[in-house]
Nucleic acid binder design. Structure first.
Lengths: 109, 109
DNA sequence: CAGACTAGTTTGCAATATAGACTAGTATGT
DNA sequence: ACATACTAGTCTATATTGCAAACTAGTCTG
């Protein structure tokens, strides 16, 4: 390896960061979904402190990316939206996590 | 600690992520500056593969945040822009790095 | 049946990121 | 001498986001 690449060989990985996951609000959402397997809209709303509109649009973006399943059902006449990670979403999150770990591990900070 | 907080105690840290540094393009720029101490515009341009306009605006944002020093000088009649981390920038980057490490270390991904 | 609450979506706005056009000058080829 | 190409950026325009307030639709309660 060339001398000028020392300590920077991992930096190219930064370019390939998954932007869908990288956004803090979505990283937060995904972190919860990764842990609890399934959650409803209001649970996420309370945990994340996002506004409803904001949470809604982030979830739609995650759904569009194929990372999250949005299932709507009724529980005693009250609508409930259930969120869960898709297989893809779980994989993408794991990969993102690995990538970030690697980036910061190799950085001299 | 309450049971429902298991595995999620670190997630609040996500909310406080420094957005200036978090943006991949700037993370990349800062990573280089962190390693090499000082670099000129064209070096960063080549290393990062950003366009000139894009690099310029990111640098301005970093300068505005107080993270980067922009010094312009002439080298044999040719203008050269030298970039370096400020003390603050170095500290912020280090803190960001630590925070991210912690987040991903405690995440079950 | 009026008011308040649940559960979200739609809309509008402000900030960002990105690329392309533009400026200003230098070196090189003919 | 003049044009072409290169260095070194900045400025401007646009497209995409992230975010919050307003709105929809229906349910519960006094």
């Amino acid at each position: 390896m060339a001398a000028e690449e020392k300590g920077t060989k991992n930096l190219t990985a930064i370019t390939d960061i998954d932007r869908v996951i990288h956004e803090p609000a979505r990283l937060l959402i995904l972190s919860y979904l990764y842990v609890v397997e399934s959650a409803d809209f209001l649970f996420l709303l309370r945990q994340t402190n996002l506004t409803k509109g904001n949470l809604s649009s982030h979830l739609m973006k995650l759904e569009k990316a194929g990372y999250v399943n949005i299932k709507k059902k009724f529980v005693e006449k009250i609508p409930r939206t259930l969120l869960s990670l898709t297989k893809e979403g779980r994989k993408a999150f794991h990969e993102y996590s690995q990538r970030m770990k690697k980036i910061f591990k190799e950085l001299p900070g």
